[in-house]
């Protein structure tokens, strides 16, 4: 369940340095998040969509992810047209739909998907480890990057630990239901997971101190930015400038 299906590959996007991808993704996402005109949102979606296609994601996982994020937009489509308010209405049998609500729901759907495509094309094509090191080299606090890298490393261990405990509970005939007993059992399972994580943390810490750990991870590969990385960065920044211009020029005049 916890995996990075898009992180391996050999496209243009996989080869670029994590730093330029983080900066590029941040600038494009920011522009798309702040935009409030539908034509610009469509353009943004098309641009990030083509970036995504260029990164050649695995189709099955891609569809699954797109479905997941659109559960929320679906919720908005079901609620906003009915509840948004505003003057204009559209009557379909007994339902009164607000046009403003439909406008809002479509804008949000376009924005959400546009930013999501950008995320998949630029960030999901890096491994979490290289993103963590990239963030550190971009100047994020070292402790925070340490937390990120280390939590990522231990995530799988703890998840397995929890699954082992749950399997043991099942073998003993535990069936989840709506009862206090169920909640208590889950609490104890999670409590035990915490206890194990805590003790594992202590052990790992001692082991690392013993090996002279001083709070800094030294990555095995320390890539230098190549000419292609700079080109990539400039392209991404130009794209975000273009989208900014588009969203500003298309602002509804009021």
């Amino acid at each position: 369940m916890i995996d990075e299906p898009f992180a391996t590959g050999s496209t243009l996007f996989h080869k670029r340095d994590a730093r330029v991808k983080i900066v590029g993704a941040a600038s494009i996402s920011l522009v798309l998040a702040l935009n409030s005109s539908i034509p610009a949102a469509v353009a943004g979606c098309l641009v990030t969509g083509s970036l995504l296609i260029l990164s050649r994601p695995e189709p099955l996982s891609l569809c699954r992810r797109i479905a997941t994020i659109n559960v929320f937009t679906l919720f908005l489509w079901l609620t906003l047209p009915l509840t948004y308010g505003g003057e204009e209405m559209m009557q379909i049998s007994f339902l009164k739909l607000h046009l403003d609500g439909i406008h809002m729901a479509s804008l949000i759907t376009l924005k959400t998907n546009g930013i999501f495509f950008c995320f998949l094309a630029l960030l999901a094509t890096s491994t979490t480890v290289s993103l963590g090191h990239g963030l550190e080299r971009l100047g994020l606090p070292r402790k925070l990057c340490f937390l990120l890298l280390f939590s990522y490393r231990q995530l799988f261990v703890i998840h397995q630990e929890y699954q082992r405990l749950r399997r043991a509970a099942r073998l003993r005939g535990f069936i989840p239901a709506n009862s206090l007993h169920t909640y208590r059992t889950y609490s104890h399972l999670f409590g035990m997971t915490l206890v194990k994580s805590w003790n594992r943390g202590e052990r790992v810490h001692q082991a690392m101190v013993l090996r002279g750990f001083s709070g800094k991870f030294i990555p095995l590969d320390q890539p230098q930015l190549a000419k292609e990385d700079y080109l990539f960065l400039i392209t991404m920044l130009l794209l975000s400038l273009l989208l900014t211009g588009l969203s500003l020029s298309l602002l509804p005049l009021s």
Binding site: K143, L147, F150, Y152, Q154, L155, G201
Partner: peptide, 15 residues
């Protein structure tokens, strides 16, 4: 000294 336990708990929170 505490950062290791915090990262483990952060992972537990994710789980």
């Amino acid at each position: 000294d505490r950062i290791m336990t915090v990262s483990l708990l952060s992972a537990a929170f994710f789980v």
